[in-house]
């Protein structure tokens, strides 16, 4: 369990700076010691599903960060009125509205992006990180810290996604940044004939890789599960 679940905003002083030490931690903690994927083990499903290339990983990171941040703000604003017996449904409704709004706006203004996102929009709604942050943080904290918490967790999710995607794309298909204008065929450009590792392209390969990342990170941080 994250330490933030018990952290409830104290009666704070009148003018806390926007980026106080505590608020900065809301961004930096999820990047490492409280990472949603490797420490809280949330959002693993999508982390395995969409990381075979870097491009979708980046798109998903942006989408999730946006949705988590703004859903956090809304739930935080509504937190004193939400009946606790139906709070999960209320959270889900808010998340869905945001996700659909984002999708509609993309379709109207950046159509290419919308086509790329379409598969992942559903994944954002069901992503455990969004609901997890709403339930664990936004329900008990003010809008601004909630917003930062959303951004932090979105980026923390994104870091792991991009690490996974870089390794999988490089060793799975021998390219980097496929689908971008600066697409790079790494091995070809070095004159090496590389047979891609098919396991890394499958979700199973990603699962093994994620396990290794968790192992390395925990042994560096000395993190232990508490029972």
């Amino acid at each position: 369990m994250s330490t933030e679940t018990v952290e409830i905003e104290k009666v704070e002083k009148k003018s806390e700076p926007l980026f106080s030490k505590k608020n900065k931690k809301l961004i930096s903690n999820p990047l490492d010691i409280d990472n949603p994927i490797t420490v809280q083990i949330l959002g693993v499903c999508s982390a395995l599903a969409i990381t075979s290339q870097i491009k979708p990983a980046i798109v998903m990171t942006l989408g999730l960060t946006f949705v988590t941040a703004f859903s956090n703000v809304f739930i935080s604003l509504m937190r004193n009125g939400i009946p606790s017996r139906i709070r999960i449904i209320v959270q889900l409704a808010i998340v869905s509205v945001w996700v659909i709004l984002v999708d509609q706006l993309l379709k109207a203004y950046v159509y290419d992006m919308a086509k790329l996102m379409s598969v992942y929009v559903g994944l954002i709604i069901t992503n455990c990180i969004v609901m997890g942050r709403l339930e664990a943080y936004a329900m008990a904290n003010k809008p601004w810290p909630s917003f930062l918490d959303g951004i932090g967790n979105g980026l923390g999710y994104g870091i792991i996604l991009i690490i996974l995607a870089v390794v999988r794309e490089l060793f799975g298909s021998g390219t980097l940044f496929k689908g971008f204008p600066f697409e790079w065929h790494v091995f070809e450009s070095m004159g090496i004939k590389y047979q891609g590792n098919g396991l890394l392209l499958l979700p199973a390969g990603a699962c093994i890789l994620l396990g290794i990342i968790i192992w390395v990170q925990r042994s560096i941080n000395g993190y232990r599960e508490t029972h």
Binding site: G81, I86, V90, A93, I94, V97, Q104, L105, A108
Partner: peptide
């Protein structure tokens, strides 16, 4: 509360859909 929320969310989405 849930009725209000449903109407609100529905209105927002309907508005977005029609205007876009």
């Amino acid at each position: 509360y849930s009725a209000g929320l449903t109407i609100f969310c529905g209105a927002v989405l309907a508005f977005a859909s029609i205007s876009l």
